[in-house]
Nucleic acid binder design. Sequence first.
DNA 1: CTGAATGAAAA
DNA 2: TTTTCATTCAG
Length: 446
Amino acid sequence: MPAERTRGSRRTESDGQRLVWTMPVEPTDPSGVSFATNVTPTSFNESPHTALDSPISENIMFPPTDDNVSGPRRPTHSKKKPENHIPRPPNAFILFRSSFIKSQHVSTEVETNHSTLSKIIGLTWQNLPEKERQVWHAKAKAALEEHKRKFPQYAFRPTQGKKGGTTEKRKVREVEPKDMKRCAKIAELLAAGLKGQELDSAMADFDKHHVPEIVTRFEAPITARAYRRSSSAPIPDTENSKSSQSFFSTVATARKMRASSTRPTRCPTPDLANPANLDQATLKKEPSFDFSSFSFEKTVSPLPAFACDPLNEPIPPSPADSTMSHPDAFPVPLNVNTASFLDDWNQCTTPITPGTPDFLESPSPPPFAGSYGTFPMNLEKNVPDMPATFPAYQQCGLDMGLSGEHYLSHPSDYTAFPHHPDSSLTHLDIDFSSFMNTGPVHQYQL
DNA sequence: CTGAATGAAAA
DNA sequence: TTTTCATTCAG
């Protein structure tokens, strides 16, 4: 399991705030490279010598940066660390990454986001010949020994996940999926020996034809009620704490809404995997939208076309439809009358999206009273080259019939669309009538 | 302050 | 087995 790394709550202690570079904790460092006690070295320069230096193999793909002279040595991050914090000794990968970054093997032309770079470097690390990896492991070992020498009394003391009262909910993944295909491509090229300039052009070429996935997310339908609640007390988080990686906690949502005046947060799309949760009773009961009942539990990839033919009636429930080609495809039935909550929902769109007046002035007025809902949509990147109007829901899921790919195993109900860099739509007309008892088209401002 | 990778060390 | 934290810096 790709056990996602959660970042526990951070220390709350008073942070030193000031970054001192001096700290006589260590005996005059003979190597000249010194670990400031409270500041992490800008990067790990190899120790100036060491018999451990592996024989400079003629064919090292990513030779360690050799600049010994400590660089600018800026405080990498002014984190909240005790005044005399001693950083952990770097492991092989960290050393490799550090060197890799410094070497600019992947120029900022290709990628600047470090999160993404980590992905790329991670892949590169895997592709790295065992022999070359050993070099880094050796360096890590050396670094460890050096560290031990410098800080004999050092002991790794991870802070126990803040238990105290501080609620501190676990982090909620809220980032868009990365364009892994592109990352893989870069890693592939790197493995092939391309880097720097060569890589730049190679990628420029690749990007010309590569159709990155543009990620769309359906935001949380904010009801007037929900909105009101949000401004005060936290909304009770409907369980799902564990798997609730699936969605923002309502608390997070509320906080976010207040924080940013932009669009509302996200929006759980109907729980297609559990249509039962969408019965009217539920909806009527909680017109403000039950977040917990709206989540995709599985990845709903390309779904069978028959599942939701817009021209036909909603397909009746069929739990384990054996005809489903995709094991994760959800059970289809999605006969939901949204009138009960959409009405309320629409009413509060305004206060939340003050910046988008035309949001309510959608040129396509709801044909049927109370039959429309506004699934605020956020396009993370550009808008794909898609028809201005398309028969929504040709396929189950909210892939808009664009044969997109869903990222629903994650919290977010992301929908990826083929993307065309030049296009630019401002809205989408979506017809939910095929899966909801709603009227036809509704326009979504993008 | 986070994310994102891998891995060492600790809980 | 699960967490933390090393690096890095744009967002």
